[in-house]
Design a protein around this nucleic acid. Structure first.
Lengths: 174, 174
DNA sequence: AATGAAATCGACCAGCA
DNA sequence: TGCTGGTCGATTTCATT
């Protein structure tokens, strides 16, 4: 057996059901969850703690509408770096530190980093791009505006294929 | 005055401070927040409700570690569509409905959609790509693997520039 | 908009299967 | 280990300012 994988410490169907429910809306009472799952409130709470301690639930966060903060503009910037100078990880960390940057992906292929940023104005976007090219090792950038965004109705747990579900649940023949 | 913007219904510095705190970790007691902000617990709760009702806080969600569900592979797929057939919005909605798809951006420029997906295996990624090209109107795709991801330490509210902050707070001379 | 008191709900503990 | 039931503390609600 391999011990290198730090995948979930034995999740069952009940755990998955809890995750599917709360990953989209944590504003449910323990009682509601308990009723839906036919277990007691304490059991739900016990499992929630286990999922938090086990790192399955990384955090509980309030999702803020960017539009309400005036952030009406999003952009995707491809960043090419010169591979000679410095390690990519450092550049990635510098990119993600920039104000307005929401997410950074380091990718294989001709593009090295994909940077998603969210700003109030074109000026602010230009500002971000300037700060990106100022980073040591950055060769060139290419940006495109985001016209519209689509978010899945359900999160990761609910989007698992049947194949993926069973792979999560029975990692050992108990 | 324009009335078309549905930006935040008058946020003040206290609201922003609350948002900055809970967008990264909602697991704080009202008492802690009240102490940090020098207002009463009830006042914090009152403001939280106002922020939820006003749509500033869209939802409270549990963030799940994809790795714990075996989703160790992420990919970014550029999708080109033929502009003659159908509206882009329909294609975007079909893309985001696919299992494993985490986010879809509709962009200006040569690339029409940028699709971020998260899967357990290369097979599952191939499966997603197959379903993408099967969508009516999709011309071609180009995918790249994500080797590493970088997330900001703080969320949108904390990443506002000073310029953006003041733009949020004093939208009317009260 | 904010407060304090009362009702409700969640967190924790000891014990049990 | 997973769960139960009960207790305590926290949160939600509401009348009041």
């Amino acid at each position: 057996m391999n011990d290198t994988l730090r995948t979930a410490p034995d999740l069952d169907e009940t755990d998955l059901a809890i995750l599917e429910r709360i990953e989209d809306d944590f504003d449910v009472s323990l009682e509601t969850l308990a009723d839906q799952l036919d277990i007691s409130k304490s059991a739900v709470h016990y499992r929630l703690n286990k999922l938090k301690d086990g790192g399955v639930i990384q955090s509980v966060t309030a999702d803020i509408d960017p539009l309400m903060l005036g952030l009406e503009m999003a952009a995707i910037t491809d960043v090419m770096v010169s591979h000679e100078s410095g390690y990519s990880e450092d550049i990635g960390e510098r990119l993600v530190e920039l104000d307005g940057v929401e997410k950074v992906y380091y990718t294989m292929g001709d593009v090295d980093f994909v940077v998603v940023s969210r700003v109030q104005s074109r000026d602010q976007l230009n500002n971000i791009i300037e700060r990106i090219v100022a980073i040591d090792g950055v060769n060139s950038t290419s940006s495109k505006f985001v016209m519209q965004e689509f978010d899945p109705e359900h999160g990761v747990a609910a989007n698992l294929t049947d194949e993926a579900r069973s792979a999560v649940i029975d990692h050992t023949g108990e």
